[in-house]
Structures are given as C-alpha cells and as structure tokens.
Nucleic acid binder design. Structure first.
Length: 601
RNA sequence: GGGGAUGUGGCGCAAUUGGUUAGCGUACCAGACUGUCGAUCUGGUGGUUGCGAGUUCGAGUCUCGUCAUCCUCGCCA
C-alpha cells in the first residue's frame, strides 16, 4: 500500500519513527498550532492521523513566519524531513508522538474561513450542525473511523459472497410502482406524461427474475427507498445486503448467511461468532417472549395464565378471555425488591404499549401484596401463582388484553423489568426466527401477506391453505434477530404457478388483478423458474450495532433528518416551474395543500 | 396524522417574582512568549434571545401561533 501521489509522498498519519531521516512531501489540514515565539508547532491532519510540524531555532525566518500565518483548516503542502524527537519531547499516546517534521517549504494550497464548529474529536456539537456540515464533521477521527469501518465491512461481505460464487448484479433504481408494502417514492416521467417510475423499496422482484435468468447466486449491496415516517433506526433510504439463491432450501440460506456473518465478525472484530445460530419458530417466540424479535439475552419469559385466570374472581381477566384475548404474565425472579416507583415504570411501559394496565403482585413472606393480591388470597390464588411458578421474593406482572396489544405490552414489560433488574447481559445472541405466519389480518379484516405474496407456505399447511384457511398458516419465511433487533428477513419463494394462484386467491387478488400488477413476474415464471430463496440484511442497523453507534445516522455518510430532508443540500426543494411543466404536472398552490377540497365553494 | 422535548454570539451555558447597556467559558482575530501537543498570558471582534403576533409602563422570561431538530405512536408486506 502506498499513499504516495502527485501532491504527496506520504499521508500525514502514516509516518512513524521508522521514517526518521526521510525527506517527505505531505498534504493535510491545519488542525492545531502552538506558537511560542521562538519555537512554533503546527499539527497537520488527514484521515490517517496527524503529524507535528516544528519550527525551532534552526528554522529559517521564512519558515517561522509562514507557520505563524496559518489558520485552522488551511490545506497545506509541505516539504520537510522526518526527525526523531529528543526523548524529553516525545508524546505518549499519540501515534506519531516520537517524530516531527522539520519543514523546509510550506505552501498554503487553500485557505479556510472560520468554521461553524471546531474539528475536535470529542467536542459535543449539536447533531443538526454536524449533519449540515457533515463534510467538516467527517474530518473528526471518530466519524471518519466509522465511515472507514463501513467500507471495510462492505468489502468483507463482498469477499465472502464472491468467494461463494455469488454474482453482484446492479438492479434498476427507476422501476415500477407496486402498491403492496410501503409507500413508494414516485418519479414523474417527461416522455410519458401521467406515468411514473417508483424508486425500489427493495430489489425483490429483480433478484427473483435473476434466478429465472439462471444467475443462481445473486447479491447486491442495494439502496432501498420507502416513503414512510422515520425513527431513530429508520431512514428514507437505507442499505441492504440483498441475496438470492437457486436450488436451495432454508438450511442452505441459513448456512450461507451464517458464513457471511461469521466472516464479517472475524474480519471486523476478530471475534468468532458462534454458529450455527439459535433457532426458534415464530409461534414459540411469541409464546415465550411476546415478540417476533426476541432478545435472548433477556432471561424473562412469558407465562400463559388463561386457565387459572378464570378461577380467581377477577372480572377483567374473565371478560378479556371471553372475547378471545390473552391473560399472560411475566414472572420477575427476585422482583419483589423493586420499588413501587420502579414497578410503576413497568406498568407505564405497558400502558405506553397500548395496554389498559398491568395488574401485578409481589410474593412476600406473608403472601402476595400489591394490586392483584386481593384476588390471590384463596387456594385458587395460590394455584394461580403456582402456575406462574412465582415464589417468595418474585414479582408477577400480568397483562390482559386483545392478543396483538397484549403481546406488545408483554414485550414492553419484559424489556423494562429486565432493564430494572439488570438482567440483559452476556454475549451477542443471534437467532433465526422461523415459520412466520403467511398472512396477517388488517384492521378492516382483510388478509395480506405477512412477508410478501411470493412466500412459500410450510408444506404441511398447504392443504389448509387450499381449503381456504388463512389464520395459522405458516410460511417458509425467516428473520435474523440480534439481541432483539431485526437484522434481516427472507423466505423460500414460490416457483409453482398453481400455488401462486392459491396465494393470490387467499389475499383476494383475482387472476386478472394479479396479472395486472405482476404481469412481468408471472410471465417470467412461465418460462422455467428454478426453486429459489433469499435473504436481505439491513446493513445500517447491523453496522450501528457493530460499531457501537447511537443511531444509524452515525454509520451513514450523509443521513437525512427525521422528516426526510437532506441537511446538507436542503433537499427536497422546489424546482424551476419549467421543469414541472415539462413533466406535465400541475403544482398545488401552497395554501391549498392542506385542504384542497374546502377551497371549492 | 397524533403525543412529547429542545431552540439565547460559531459552539457550550447563565440571566431573582417580568425590570438598567443580555453575562461567562470556549472558539475566532491581534499582540507577546524558545519544546508545545486541548500550550500560556494580554487585548479585541461577535447577539433583532428560531420566527410572528399578543399581554404589559417594560418580555430572553407570560400567552397564542408558526418553523426547525430530536424522540415516540400510527405507519414501515
């Protein structure tokens, strides 16, 4: 590796004691200067590190002058000699602390105006400011480091997959809108007014078409766009490691992804990842952890209290069960030590998650105490506690609600309680969550694909599917979950036209409608589609975890704000009217955007 | 679409119950200084308190609206 180029012989940050005596030409940014009159110092920085330039009594007047005229972030080209510092002048804890440069020529290449903030590694700059001036922010070592780590990680992924005979295929960014899933970003089209491209939510369809094309192992580090509201771990455009394989079953995909992840960890953290990863079927995950993305470091589990709940005379439990709801709880071993305030915060977490409340009790030496305890004084109450395996010193938190809401609340209770008891620790836990439901019910009672409509059902559930079943039909879809964070998902795809029709029927798409929406895919599947399956890993989230970043914005070079704006360029922005006219579009008057209908009168 | 938090020189903070010319640190600029490495010392520049209304003799402070950023619910197959 050489960083030598026309303007420099070395990078500032690569010089070490071994270079002592060499004549070098360096380029970099002035990061700091310390002027003592007779002797002055300037630190010159690039992304590899920094190096001290020293002008002492041996320096010419011209050199001393030129160093004192420098300002922060000027770009310099300097020529000089690397000198080993005298022992007393060496700096511990600085990579180049044993050496300094004796400059013989100093050229200011470009000057810099006063900066919006200082380029200091540990300075607490508001994120808004950092992102607006991201190009300055990334001169700071920790920021630069994360960008370089990301590059290295991407490279490691490519190396593994290329070695596994995968082909990297770039799929279109201007593609067709599909009404399923997230809202599309639409791109108007000049040549065909009233027709639109959509930016891809994922390369899903193209990678399946690549399988039909015989590219039996495809991958791509792909940008995906979804026009939905954002969160700390969600950006409007994000990056996936997308892959697809032909002639494989789940085991092949699991093994491949495990090799990819293990090599990544090996390369990035010199850490052997335990493989194969753990596995848990969706139904078991929901039953035990009230989540489809369980954090297995959290030892707390959910207990089903439906049976004993009807015997203790608590009417809320009974009415919830009558309506088909859940009565389940989380036993917190030794949780009786928690304060009232802490338990209130558990209940608050449940309420935030949508539950009406969280009835709880402590098991004390003289029996249960707390809000739920008045129903537990009887033999039935003891049986209730026994069914939760609650013993003296424990806390039992119960949730009674509609299944979906109860699950979310139990998950919140489990997380909060484990947090309070400091139970979440130990090594990373990667787990495959398998056999997701094929369908899920929407608010208006419709059934939609839980993953996407090309997901293969579990073999033994196909009969039920063909008989018109929806609920409980399992799919061959799987998620990869790390410490409670969903890293990626995938599935075995349908390659059988008849089965595909059954799925479309099940979600209420008749043949004509299915044809209209997915004509190109269905046609492709008439020409000999291979059995295939795939997976996609969200790299922003994975990297944020691996690099210990607070948010995914920290691992994205130029992230967007929580309303999808680009702090640097100001996008999205208005455009010239002529551009809009050329597209055959009409602009809504800005005052009418809010309520177009009410304007008509 | 809903809820919450924040907003005072470039940055971090302060300003009694509403009360004088909005103060301090840092950065920046200038000068001094022979070994610093977040140098030090002296001096200086820099603010329509996010924006707009309102209440008041008087608003950084109170009220309403609005904008921006962040968090969150819905949403994200």
């Amino acid at each position: 590796m050489s960083l030598s180029a026309s303007w420099r012989t070395h990078a500032c940050g690569e010089l070490r004691a071994e270079h002592a005596g060499e004549r070098v030409t360096l380029c970099g940014w002035v990061s700091n200067r310390r002027d003592h009159g007779g002797v002055s110092f300037v630190d010159l920085r690039d992304r590899y590190g920094d190096i001290q330039l020293t002008a002492d009594e041996t320096a010419s007047e011209e050199i001393r002058q030129s160093l004192t005229r420098l300002h922060p972030e000027y770009v310099l080209q300097i020529e000089g000699v690397v000198r080993l510092r005298d022992a007393e002048y060496r700096t511990k804890g600085r990579d180049s602390g044993d050496i300094e440069i004796v400059p013989e020529r100093v050229t200011v290449v470009t000057k810099a105006s006063r900066l919006p903030f200082e380029i200091v590694d540990d300075l607490d700059v508001p994120e808004e400011m950092r992102m607006k001036y991201r190009y300055l922010d990334m001169r700071r070592a920790p920021v630069a480091k994360r960008l370089m780590l990301r590059s290295k990680a991407n490279h490691a992924l490519r190396c593994t997959l290329i070695a596994e005979q995968f082909v990297e295929i770039e799929t279109p960014m201007l593609t067709k809108s599909t009404p399923e899933g997230a809202r599309d970003y639409l791109v108007p089209n000049r040549r065909q007014p009233n027709s639109w491209y959509a930016l891809p939510q994922s390369p899903q369809l193209f990678k399946q078409l690549s399988m039909v094309g015989g590219m039996d192992r495809y991958f791509q580090i792909a940008r995906c766009m979804r026009d939905e509201d954002l969160r700390a771990d969600r950006q409007p455009e994000f990056t996936q490691l997308d892959l697809e394989m032909s002639f494989v079953d789940e085991e092949d995909v699991y093994a491949l992804v495990e090799r990819v992840m293990a090599n990544l960890y090996q390369e990035m953290q010199s850490e052997a990842l335990q493989t194969p990863f753990e596995r848990i079927p969706y139904a078991e995950s929901v039953a035990r952890f009230a989540s489809d993305k369980p954090d297995l470091r959290n030892p707390l589990e959910v207990v089903d209290l439906a049976g004993p709940a009807t015997t203790i005379g608590f009417s809320i439990f009974e009415s919830v069960l009558e309506k088909g709801g859940w009565v389940r709880g989380v036993r917190v071993p030794a949780g009786a030590s928690l304060s009232r305030k802490q338990i209130d915060s558990i209940e608050a977490a449940a309420k935030d998650a949508g539950a009406g409340g969280a009835a709880w009790c402590k098991v004390g030496p003289d029996g249960p105490t707390g809000p739920l305890s008045r129903f537990l004084k009887s033999d039935e109450g003891s049986a209730f506690l026994a069914s939760a395996a609650a013993v003296e010193g424990d806390l039992l938190v119960t949730i009674a609600d509609r299944p979906r809401r109860a699950m979310v609340a139990l998950d919140a209770v489990r997380r909060r309680a484990a947090d309070l008891m400091d139970l979440v620790k130990g090594p990373d836990r990667l787990v495959w969550v398998t056999e997701f439901p094929l369908f899920e019910e929407t608010d208006d009672g419709e059934w939609t694909p839980a993953h996407h409509p090309f997901t293969y059902p579990v073999e033994e559930d196909i009969a039920a599917l063909k008989a018109g079943g929806r609920e409980g039909i399992r799919s061959r879809a799987y998620d990869l979950v790390l410490n409670g964070v969903e890293l990626g998902s995938g599935s075995i795809r349908i390659h059988n036209a008849e089965l595909q029709r059954d799925i479309f029927t099940a979600i209420g798409l008749d043949a004509a409608e299915a044809e209209r929406r997915f004509a190109f895919l269905l046609e492709a599947f008439r020409y000999g589609p291979p059995p295939h399956a795939g997976f996609a890993i969200g790299l922003d989230r994975l990297y944020a975890l691996m690099f210990d970043a607070e948010t995914i914005r920290e691992v994205i070079a130029f992230p967007k704000t929580s309303v999808g704006g680009c702090p640097l360029t100001g996008a999205p922005s208005d455009v010239d009217l002529s551009q809009v006219e050329e597209l055959g579009l009409l602009l809504a008057p800005s005052s009418d955007l809010e309520d177009a209908d009410s304007h008509i009168n």
